[in-house]
């Protein structure tokens, strides 16, 4: 009986959190379109985020492409279907694995960074200091960061996909002696607009979720040093969960469109 109550309590807390997060998102949309735009800070954040996660995304993408190809090759060989390799790789990477893995990495790298940064600014009263100096801290700190993650994540995913396909090409080249051009040709042949568009739209939502949760956790960070750690940590956990939910919804919606 007790554990049921506990689960109900946890669920309540979760719903409450979703509610507060929606309110926060509402405030984002309200402030995002108000003058003045903090364009310089937005660009700075974009640069900073891209710069911080580029290498990580590249390395992970490369390894995923490599491993994925190595692992599926024997199975395909068994059926004599190795020629399907490029299309299989491209479709699974671009539709699903690329976006979600990159988003998860960025949740760990960027989301936790935002949570910790805003959290420590809250704790040391820097956010209050901005407010009393007449600058809107929500606009300067939160809006710019959420916009930056929303725009940078698709770019990072695109980049990660390209590297992953390159990793996959390396395996094919070593095992099967395919030329670079031929492999990329086959990869792109297999792709259709209907693969690319939902996959890309999804990444904007991923980026938005990463920025939103990171900022939310940091902005309302509890006082004390423990609060900062908690903000960073829960930003990652909550974002990851949200990413899978968004992914699920995206696949679901895409599927409906396919049927039509």
């Amino acid at each position: 009986m007790n554990s049921i109550f506990k689960i109900i309590e946890l669920f309540k807390a979760f719903l409450l959190e979703i509610g507060e997060l929606s309110y926060f998102a509402g405030r984002f949309f309200k402030e995002a379109f108000r003058h003045p735009t903090e364009f310089k800070e937005f660009l700075r954040q974009c640069f900073y985020m891209g710069n911080r996660s580029l290498l990580l995304v590249a390395v992970t993408g490369f390894i995923i492409g490599l491993v994925f190809t190595l692992q599926s090759r024997p199975t395909l060989q068994e059926f004599g279907a190795v020629s399907w390799m490029p299309s299989m790789v491209s479709i699974s990477l671009i539709r699903e694995i690329g976006p979600i893995i990159t988003a998860l990495i960025c949740a760990g790298r960027i989301g936790s960074g935002i949570g910790a940064e805003l959290g420590s600014m809250r704790v040391t009263e820097q956010i209050d200091a901005m407010e009393v100096s007449g600058t809107n801290p929500f606009k300067y700190l939160v809006v710019t960061r959420i916009l930056a993650t929303t725009f940078m994540l698709p770019i990072l995913v695109f980049f990660g996909d390209a590297i992953a396909i390159f990793g996959s090409y390396l395996v094919e080249n070593i095992k099967g002696n395919v030329s670079f051009l031929l492999y990329y040709n086959q990869v792109f042949d297999a792709l259709e607009f209907s693969d690319l568009i939902p996959a890309t739209i999804k990444t904007f939502f991923f980026g938005f979720a990463i920025g939103l949760v990171g900022c939310f956790k940091g902005y309302y960070c509890e006082k004390g040093t423990a609060g900062v750690g908690l903000a960073a940590n829960s930003a990652v956990v909550f974002t990851s969960m949200l990413l899978f939910i968004i992914d699920f919804i995206a696949v679901f919606v895409t599927d409906i469109f396919y049927d039509m």
Partner: peptide, 27 residues
């Protein structure tokens, strides 16, 4: 109205110069 915070509250990602310039941006 100027406010001097109990813990100074300097923006720690900015230089001293940028700290001082910050309040000027919106005024």
């Amino acid at each position: 109205v100027g406010f001097l915070f109990q813990g100074s509250a300097l923006y720690d990602s900015m230089t001293v110069r940028e700290n001082l310039e910050f309040p000027l941006r919106r005024h």
